[in-house]
Design a protein around this nucleic acid. Structure first.
Lengths: 208, 208
DNA sequence: GTCTATAATAAGATAGAC
DNA sequence: GTCTATCTTATTATAGAC
């Protein structure tokens, strides 16, 4: 890969980045089905036909946004991996916290529900699937390690833990609490973290 | 209310019930936005125009389905309330279990996401809102009682517990595990129950 | 590559006969 | 109340000039 880019190419990439940023925000706000390409064009400030010169379809638009989110998540996971002061359990908690903060910031596109034209497009999108598997592998290692360490319940199958962490990205509890207006963002994150990792039941005073 | 119904009225109600049943299934399967009125008509086996003689809009169709689900949930909560062998914590666990079983059976319509024409229709639907508030009140009493009993973590605000229980109705973990095919329905329910009430962290051997 | 204008299609809703 | 046929609107996508 050359790092030397012509002015034209830089402008091109900057525009595509502006488009993807708008798509991310709209996806987080309304979801794929309710987001219209007209809205995206309006938010970016260009004509709809110009959008289609950059991305061939609405699905490709959304996939590009999902790839960018995956890259953010992978970057965050790399930071946590590099932090030698954290054990596997702490890394899992911190990536979950990052997920909740990202959702609260309105930057977490809602994942595709089971039946959606987006779902098929994402499954066929090589870049997205590679990143999803990389992230799953890294979190999977943390989970197995944390279960060996005794910080994550070994009675839960690892995929249950993985899906539960992933699901925080679209946890409706976050939105409900935000809409209620009785808690600030930090409190919402801590409440959801406590219910997720500690459970709803009362915990006996921990030996640890 | 008279219990005496003419034959015509009975046929009318039976048809409306068939419609609502189809809508419930399609809502659980595809969600509101992806469900089309044509599909509903096809599944019931009548013409679309006939549907509109029974329900004035797609939103009214979905609202009728949501009311029926709420009635099921209220009936289940009444059964649990009447069971003197259960304390508040056990009732909360059992209503959550019922929610998960209903979702696995394909009978739990997905709740409206934040931005949807359905959301506004439901907020304006008196029958739905009354039932939602009745159910929230009953679960709210259970939560406060369970926190006083020490079976639910008193550090969590009651509304966090309430929303967390409600959110099991659309927990994507259930669908992921089902799609994975490595667990039967009963195992899925138990894994999600354990992660929800016990938390992802290892629990020290309980004193209780 | 950007624009305006325009297909092409899908889906909610209705008209009018029976 | 049920049907067929149709209207209306919203939305994805493209044509063609510059």
């Amino acid at each position: 890969m050359s790092t030397k880019l012509s002015f034209r190419q830089k402008v091109h990439l900057a525009r595509e980045d502006a488009i993807v940023t708008a798509v991310k925000r709209l996806l987080a706000d309304k979801g794929f089905d309710l987001m219209t390409v007209d809205e995206v064009a309006a938010e970016v400030g260009i004509a709809k036909a110009s959008l289609y010169k950059h991305f061939p379809s609405k699905e490709a638009l959304a996939a590009a946004a999902m790839v960018q989110v995956m890259d953010s998540a992978l970057a965050e996971s790399a930071r946590l991996q590099a932090d030698a002061g954290l054990d596997a359990g702490a890394r899992l908690r911190e990536i979950t916290r990052w997920t909740l903060r990202t959702q609260l910031a309105g930057e977490m596109p809602t994942l595709p529900s089971e039946n959606s034209s987006l779902r098929a497009a994402l499954l066929a999108h090589e870049g997205y699937m590679t990143r999803l598997m990389d992230l799953s592998d890294r979190l999977g290692e943390w989970i197995v390690q944390a279960q060996a360490d005794g910080t994550i319940d070994p009675a839960l199958p690892p995929e249950v833990v993985l899906y539960t962490v992933f699901a925080r990205a679209c946890d409706p509890v976050v939105g409900f609490l935000k809409a209620g207006g009785r808690h600030d963002d930090a409190a919402i994150v801590e409440h959801v973290m406590r219910s997720c990792f500690g459970g709803l039941q009362t915990r006996p005073p921990s030996a640890a």
